[in-house]
């Protein structure tokens, strides 16, 4: 059961202190999601604490990605998908007809499983969001946003000489950090990450994880991951899903040392899933 290193244990203890003080940025209340007639998620109650990393774990098809995608209504783009229950962002129901989904997605950004830079230059990839939302009033301001976003995504030093080369020409890990920079550029409050490291090699994964840890200071992050070590390394709160149900939720440290549910214990020790 010694999954965690000494260092991350120390960190987790520190995080626990934070957790107490933190408020909830998003709240899920009896969230159910249906694809056509098939129900993929059953009455999930899950709160997302502010300026922390929440990890969603569980075997494939357990509904964790579905839950993640319902947090910024990306499920709307899927034909026949229906969400019931309530999800709030700063107390506002995001499924309220009065809410503009486009505005919501600017506040709740998303990073996908496979790096998906647009077939444009590195600069244009990052400038895409700010341009659409009119965040920069001048070319100079836009340059600044691009640079600071790339810096925050720890990519600037690697690409500063080729900002106008194609974003698709970067390595997989760089592409994923470019996508994170792209998401940061619109100054979201929450960043959703759907298995952001599953297509990356261990070195690129380590860089992205390091980045997530830094981003925690400014953003609320929700990450779906298949890697127990990753969840343990980067998150402060962990939610375990199985077959569309939320099995257990708690502080990461507790989840990995003393899980209450047998299913959680079996999963994190690799006995199923």
């Amino acid at each position: 059961m010694n999954l965690m290193t000494e260092r991350s244990l120390e960190k987790a203890v520190g995080d626990k202190m934070n957790a107490v003080a933190s408020t909830n940025k998003m709240k899920g209340d009896k969230v159910s999601v249906f694809y056509g007639a098939k129900q993929a998620l059953f009455d999930v109650d899950l709160d997302i604490p502010e300026k922390m990393v929440t990890a969603l774990i569980g075997p494939s098809g357990c509904g964790k990605s579905t839950f993640l995608r319902s947090l910024n209504r990306m499920n709307d783009t899927i034909e026949g998908c229906r969400v019931t229950g309530q999800i709030t962002l700063d107390g506002e129901d995001i499924y309220d007809p009065k809410i503009d989904v486009v505005e919501l997605r600017a506040r709740v950004g998303m990073v996908f499983q496979k790096p998906n830079p647009f077939p444009k230059s590195i600069y244009e990839n990052v400038a895409y969001g700010p341009r659409i939302h009119g965040l920069a009033k001048s070319r100079h301001e836009l340059d600044e946003i691009v640079e600071s976003s790339l810096r925050r995504a720890s990519l600037f030093e690697e690409v500063k000489d080729r900002l106008h080369d194609a974003g698709t020409g970067l390595s997989g890990g760089q592409q994923q950090r470019l996508c994170i920079a792209r998401a940061i550029a619109v100054s979201p409050e929450v960043i959703l990450m759907d298995e952001p490291c599953s297509a990356l090699d261990p070195i690129a994964t380590a860089k992205v994880e390091e980045l997530i840890d830094e981003l925690r200071q400014n953003y609320t992050i929700v990450i779906v991951t298949h890697s127990m070590q990753q969840a343990a390394r980067v998150s402060q709160k962990t939610a375990m899903f199985h077959l569309g149900n939320l099995v257990e939720v708690g502080e990461t440290e507790m989840m990995f040392t003393t899980p209450k549910e047998k299913r959680t214990q079996d999963y994190i020790t690799g006995r199923f899933g």
């Binding site: 990306m74 783009t77 997605r105 950004g109 996908f112 998906n116 830079p117 895409y128 939302h133 619109v186």
Partner: peptide, 17 residues
């Protein structure tokens, strides 16, 4: 690829954008 659409929509772009 769908990933292109998702990427753009996920940044808060409208469909026509």
């Amino acid at each position: 690829p769908r990933a292109m659409r998702d990427g753009s929509l996920g940044l808060g772009a409208t469909r026509s954008e």
